[in-house]
Design a protein around this nucleic acid. Structure first.
Lengths: 337, 337
DNA sequence: AGGATGACCGCAATCGATTCCATCAATTGC
DNA sequence: GCAATTGATGGAATCGATTGCGGTCATCCT
């Protein structure tokens, strides 16, 4: 691999001139810049990022920490982050905490000296832990807020309001809530949003079915609670759980949406692959990633005067598909002849 | 952030001693090593990876290139790679080519100076391009072979044989093949495997339905071809396509598996989330990633004498679920009264 | 007791780029 | 025509760690 000295030699100049010619192009005559560029091109020269990183104190790399790369939610966030980072001239380090909160601070520390800034998607850790973890490192939180840190999230409460409004418009009055893990930040916001929306809507009562694992399997238990509670509709914490509810209801002979309507959250790709397709609140997951990168890159710009960390909100919107409809008979457990 | 000089100062030794004490522990008295370690711990010292990388010519970083991070297949590969890389003491750079083959060599070149080796998942590029792209960089291919490069893939042909064997055992004799893109390496192997297996099995004929996009949407077109061809079973190039076939068949009133059986390939998580659950050939995707890392890390070990690049094979096995059954009446287009 | 051996440790070079500073030439102004 | 200014360029320091080399001891052997 050619280095700056090789280029200098070929162009008949010094290494300093090579650096200047290729970097800003200032303080170098047009003629020499031409010669240097030609030499660099001929040798296929690329400045060594490690050396440059050492000297400049910036690695042109961002770090992304997610709890699970296989989870379609974070896969999309990662995709958005990767694309935007590359577009902004940054490489991307990725780490997967495997849903294990305690290792997250350690992963961030490992990042610390290799990246210029960190993007953190950590739904479960508590605020204190996160604040300490990113101490001294430019960071942006994804899909959650922590006081004192910049963040990008969606308007969960509004999504809940849209979901409940949709069900109310269809005529549902008794709606089950299948909440996610108690320590999930956006989970809390989604439930709060449902409660607030229920107060605004005429005659709607919420049946809080409990907390369930945010996966397909969690939906099974939630479905049984929903049936027991006699609701005509269920709002799930996320799509995977909603899919589990769908499957369990079908298994029990409860028809969707005739007997029970189901609404998910996130609009992950699989929501359209099932039948009936899932009505859900669309969350711009890749958009979250892109915006987070924009914020981080702006904060990294040395020409920028530092702004106080802000909490950014991206809009969501409900996508109505086949899993919601007008409510049927209250006692859907009686089978049709 | 503390550096080696700070530690040296606190421990009352020189930087060289700090380095030696913390690195091999050789050529340093036990007493000094103790003092240095204590000082390092007190300052929270971590050797700067950039500086070390410059000096040693190794960054302790691997690069992973995939065509689409959102595709559950590559999401799983990425997860496996990340976990194993971290376990082996390497960081992970990730790049997404967005299914655009021409940018892949460029991405590899961007990696070249930042990573010690590259993991390449590129189903579509041609051999020449890949060979040139990784010239001079330690590399391992994932899910495809190229002569002259190390690779890890699964036994696609055996998977095909298992799939067809399963259908044959159920009594199917006329089986549709919904192939993937023509330039997909494993796609070619899967079709070849089906042809070879068909020759071995009694009375099985293959109806090659054509090439389709490897997504849900591609399955729609394939399903219509399958119905037109009057087959009792279809093997799809991958699970997403199989899911599309399932959905389209249902839409047309064709029952699965009573009228037509469907077999997928890969066993991505969503295969179990639909109803009927998809019978499919399980591919150890994360395992591919882990094994690829093992190979690459071994090749990077300077103590190792270089071995010729080998093509590794991981086993697959069919997972029978609800989408396959004994064949029904040949003319399933006639509706039941 | 004196020299050889070896353990331990510090000095300084090194990796490859960036950047400050000094130098030199050329241009401009008076 | 001479001084001052501007612009182009090279030399050398720098980032933070690793490592070859050499110096300084203590120890051991004869």
């Amino acid at each position: 691999m050619a280095n700056a000295r090789d280029v200098a030699q070929l162009a008949g100049v010094s290494v300093s001139t090579v650096s200047r010619a290729l970097a800003q192009g200032q303080h170098v005559s047009a003629d020499t810049r031409e010669r240097v560029s030609a030499a660099a091109a001929r040798l296929g020269y690329r400045p060594n990022p490690t050396a440059r990183g050492l000297r400049m104190g910036r690695t042109q790399t961002l770090g992304l920490l997610v709890p699970d790369l296989e989870n379609p939610y974070f896969a999309s966030v990662t995709k958005g982050v990767q694309a935007r980072a590359r577009a902004a001239g940054y490489g991307l380090f990725v780490a997967d905490s495997e849903e294990d909160a305690p290792t997250e601070p350690e992963l961030v520390r490992e990042f610390a000296q290799r990246v210029d800034g960190v993007l953190l998607a950590s739904p479960r850790s508590d605020d204190e832990t996160l604040l300490r973890a990113v101490e001294g490192i430019p960071a942006v939180l994804v899909s959650r807020d922590v006081e004192g840190l910049a963040s990008v999230a969606v308007d969960d409460a509004d999504g809940s309001a849209q979901a409940l409004g949709h069900l109310h418009a269809l005529g549902h009055r008794r709606v089950g809530v299948a909440a996610g893990p108690g320590n999930s930040w956006s989970g809390g916001r989604r439930v709060d949003g449902l409660r607030a929306a229920a107060e605004q809507l005429d005659g709607v009562t919420l049946a809080e079915l409990g907390s369930f694992p945010p996966y397909f399997s969690g939906g099974f238990a939630a479905a049984d609670h929903a049936v027991a509670a006699g609701v005509t509709a269920v709002v799930a914490f996320n799509d995977l759980m909603a899919l589990g509810i769908l499957d369990r209801l079908r298994g029990r002979g409860v028809r969707v949406p005739e007997d029970v309507s189901v609404v998910g959250f996130d609009d992950v790709p699989v929501a359209t692959l099932v039948s009936p397709a899932l009505t859900t609140v669309h969350v711009p997951r890749a958009g979250l990633g892109r915006r987070a990168v924009d914020l981080l890159v702006a904060a990294l710009d040395p020409a920028r005067h530092p702004e106080p960390p802000a909490h950014h909100r991206l809009p969501v919107e409900i996508v109505v598909r086949g899993s919601t409809g007008v409510p049927g008979r209250p006692d859907h457990r009686t089978s049709t002849p």
